[in-house]
């Protein structure tokens, strides 16, 4: 029995030894690149802004061996677990993990103030798109969607967008919802039982949920308006609203493409978000420039190890 427990302890010790790798950051290591999937608006914004535009919908112009992840959350986990990894996420999610840190871009720190005064360059816009007028499952749904879009741009809507890390100045002439609500007769109905399908960008999902939660409580008792959220990426926003079926409102964390022609008045700008380049918190790097990023991600770039960026 003694021997068996001895072997047991030995085995455990071996396991712990195995699980502890070498400590400290080794600058001679290769850079491990992470990117989002091609449906992502974050990817679109990142590659457009650093000057590698042809990579936004295609992995071919990127270095081989790049790892594709499919949400901000898994990007944070991947880079948080990979000491030599580099990736990019939305600024709003940066504070949620201690295992990663955000880098300054071209010497400017990623803060809301720096985005508003336009010194931080790595930004993209949050936009919305709805179905074409008359193309909804019922006129009630259309009326609710129109009211909801107006709510988004009311004082209350701006407050919620800012609360969800949207970067936007509240316009000085913005109206309170109580002043707009009277234009929407649907808000007085007491017999509604509707489900509105919302989807699109995963980066906007938190904001969209906060807006719909607040909005759906504004109906008088008797009416239930439910918002069904299914966020799968900016690429599905146009595809599933005006390009097809499935969504009543779609959100994009990029601009509409030239191939995505929205009917006038059915799409618009909501607020701005910053994209942050992230590395593992063990990484000594603090700042990165767009040319460094292109050299790192681009197929013909020459940066492959961290020592080319970090000089001790």
């Amino acid at each position: 029995m003694k021997k068996i427990s001895g072997v047991f302890v030995l085995g455990l010790a071996a396991m712990t030894l195995l699980s502890c790798g070498p400590q400290g950051f080794d600058t001679s290591s290769d850079i491990k690149l992470y990117t989002r999937d091609t449906d992502s608006g974050t990817r679109d914004g990142f590659f457009t802004k650093i000057g590698l535009e042809k990579a936004k919908a295609d992995n071919a112009p990127l270095k081989t061996g790049i790892v594709t992840v499919d949400s901000n959350g898994s990007m944070m986990n991947s880079v948080g677990n990979d000491m030599y990894g580099i990736g990019y996420i939305s600024l709003s999610t940066l504070s949620e993990s201690d295992a990663i840190k955000g880098l300054s871009y071209n010497g400017v720190e990623p803060t809301e103030a720096n985005v508003l005064n336009e010194t931080y360059g790595l930004t993209r816009n949050f936009n919305y798109i709805t179905r074409k007028p008359g193309d909804y499952s019922s006129t009630d749904v259309e009326a609710v969607v129109n009211a909801f879009i107006d709510y988004t741009f009311s004082f209350e809507g701006y407050t919620i967008m800012k609360g969800e890390h949207g970067i936007v100045e509240i316009p000085s002439d913005v109206k309170h919802w109580s002043e707009i609500a009277s234009q929407h007769a649907i808000m007085q109905r007491t017999d509604l039982n509707l489900t509105i399908n919302v989807g699109g960008s995963t980066s906007v999902s938190g904001m969209a949920q906060a807006l719909t939660t607040a909005f759906s409580s504004l109906f008088p008792s008797g009416s239930t308006v439910k918002f069904n959220h299914n966020h799968t990426g900016s690429g599905d926003a146009y595809k599933n609203t005006q390009g097809g079926k499935g969504l009543d409102i779609g959100y994009l964390s990029r601009e509409l493409e030239s191939s995505e022609q929205a009917v006038e008045g059915t799409s618009g700008y909501m607020c701005t978000d910053a994209i942050v380049t992230i590395v593992n918190s063990e990484n000594p790097l603090d700042n990165i420039t767009n040319t460094q990023l292109v050299d790192m991600y681009g197929l013909n770039g020459e940066t492959v190890t961290w020592s080319q960026l970090i000089t001790e």
């Binding site: 407050t159 800012k162 609360g163």
Partner: peptide, 18 residues
Amino acid sequence: ISNLSLRVDEQIITLSSR
């Protein structure tokens, strides 16, 4: 408190549960 807008000295301060 999910979201909060306050008027402080003619300025609008927005706060959230974060």
